[in-house]
Design a protein around this nucleic acid. Structure first.
Lengths: 313, 313
DNA sequence: ATTTTGCATAACTATATAATTATGAATCAG
DNA sequence: CTGATTCATAATTATATAGTTATGCAAAAT
């Protein structure tokens, strides 16, 4: 049971003494007298029923208890500080805001529902959705301009300092309009895609290297007639109106396929399986609102995923 | 600035009222009178200089400020609770303990130093190091028997509910004893490894599928003479004493290669690059001791990595 | 139209608090 | 040995606290 008599005064005092390893110095920076600090520490020790410092005549040192408690005390004080800060943020800006980076894979499939659900839970939090090349988004995430990026796991060299939470895995698809010449044959020769315009992810896209490997594995070398694009809206329109083949992460076109607007080419893309998830900064602990959004996305992803699995059977 | 007059009494009272949406009910469960609760909430509001509840005649509802503050207040109280709990845990067990799963890649390279460093920071925390097949470790992690697993990123289907923190990337190596017949030629025909006993990771190993793909890519089909093993100590001994080829993640044999006990075969394994990092549970927030260990591992990994890079040049 | 419900306010009180000053004891640096 | 440093303890005090009971008031429910 938590002792209600513990006050933040005790914790801040404890933290200061621990930091300075000195009662006198702590008293100085806290602008109170030395006996006051001594007493406050003693009170805290009594409330916790554990000795926090070893006292000597040349300062104080943390006991084992103290070392352990230190972290939690810090976390507790930090949380309250953040709470107070958030209130003033709400007052100033009229609400909290979350900055969210979204990669094409999930922009159309998981995220709309996830954000909708989140907004029912926390309608007063502003969610800013940013799209763009993953390198840019990861950069912004690392700098703190974004709180969260959702999409495929980025290349390892971009992931330093970032943490990844797995949601599900998806493969890359080759899609074309319904009635596409290649689909006439039940088991078409895949190398024939060279005969058509092919829309491929550009150099900086996360899936670019995977796509390259896959093409090589299928004996398709450089594509003579290619368009590089990240724009799913362009890709969708172009693919539906022409005989172009579109190589794109499955998630981006799942609904189009389901609705029959686009058709997947029968090609083995099992090598292109890759993790989709949430990327956050590893330092700077996840704030409660972001955590709520994360939960909403996870929930939606698992719902989404089980639906997909159901459709497959 | 944090108002030192805020006490945990205020927070717990606030949390209870928010939970129950009622001053009367909260007063009941807190075993104090209704005016006492009213007054406590008023005090908190004054200290924060913000209205937390909208009062009506059928209960109270959180204001926008209140909704935001709620999360942080909860976090703050939780942290303190955990702190108090940890103290009694230390008292009972004579110290905190961390249960750590270690995969072969890092067992010999990064972790020894990382744990040594951690133990200088926090000598009183017991670290239990568990090795084993990754499926088992991930299972234990998910159940809570482990706090942390260090190694290669597991297959997506094992990662649900887990979070991955990237440390660095490594590839898979083919190694043999110095003076191995294959090394006589400067650019040996790699398919000739079929002539020797080959030690390969077993089916359940994380790197198994990657190894398979690589073998196929190099035109090496099934290996006639193979030994499947996870044991790096067996692998090391066997490879040094016989003409066997050992296919193993680079990290597991990096020091042996550096010291000249084993030699890497000149084969392109760039396709086998994969992320190595820390895997934790996504729910149940990371406790401060585990966080310290994570930092120690990250530090050691980056030091380790920069050294490797330096050796390459 | 009452009664009930739910919260606010006021007046009061014993206790706890958060400091203070003054003093003492043990160590450490010369 | 001396004086400075560092922390502990005691005595003291004004103030804050954490509750209490009693009462009021407006909205809902009956």
């Amino acid at each position: 049971m938590l002792d209600q008599r513990i006050k933040f005064r005790h914790l801040t005092c404890f933290l200061e003494v621990a930091r300075q390893r000195s009662v006198v110095k702590a008293a100085d920076t806290l602008s109170i007298t030395q006996p006051a600090v001594s007493k406050t520490i003693r009170e805290l020790e009594e409330h916790l029923d554990a000795r926090l410092f070893d006292r000597s005549k040349r300062g104080v040192t943390l006991t084992d208890f103290g070392k352990v408690f230190l972290r939690y005390a810090g976390a507790s004080v930090t949380a309250l500080r953040q709470g107070v800060d958030s209130i003033s943020q709400v007052r100033m800006q009229g609400g909290l805001s979350i900055n969210l980076g979204v990669l094409p894979t999930v922009a159309a499939s998981v995220m709309p529902n996830a954000i909708r659900h989140f907004k029912t839970l926390s309608p007063d939090t502003t969610v800013k959705v940013v799209a763009g090349p993953n390198v840019m988004l990861m950069g912004q995430l690392r700098v703190g301009e974004l709180d969260l990026v959702v999409g495929r796991l980025a290349e390892p060299d971009q992931m330093s300092g970032l943490s990844f939470i797995h949601l599900y895995s998806e493969h890359i698809s080759l899609v074309a309009r319904p009635g596409h010449p290649l689909l006439a044959d039940k088991n078409p020769d895949i190398t024939r895609i060279r005969e058509f315009t092919v829309l491929v992810p550009p150099k900086h896209a996360i899936i670019h290297p995977t796509v390259d490997k896959m093409l090589i594995a299928h004996g398709i070398g450089a594509l003579p007639d290619r368009i590089e694009t990240v724009s799913t809206s362009f890709g969708r329109a172009f693919t539906r109106e022409t005989d172009a083949i579109w190589i794109i992460s499955n998630g981006a076109v799942a609904s189009d396929i389901a609705e029959g607007h686009l058709v997947e080419l029968p090609i083995d893309t099992s090598d292109t399986f890759g993790p989709v998830g949430l990327t956050t900064r590893i330092d700077s602990p996840i704030s409660p609102p972001v955590e709520m959004l994360i939960n909403a996305v996870r929930e939606e992803a698992s719902r989404h995923h089980s639906e997909q699995a159901a459709t497959k059977t």
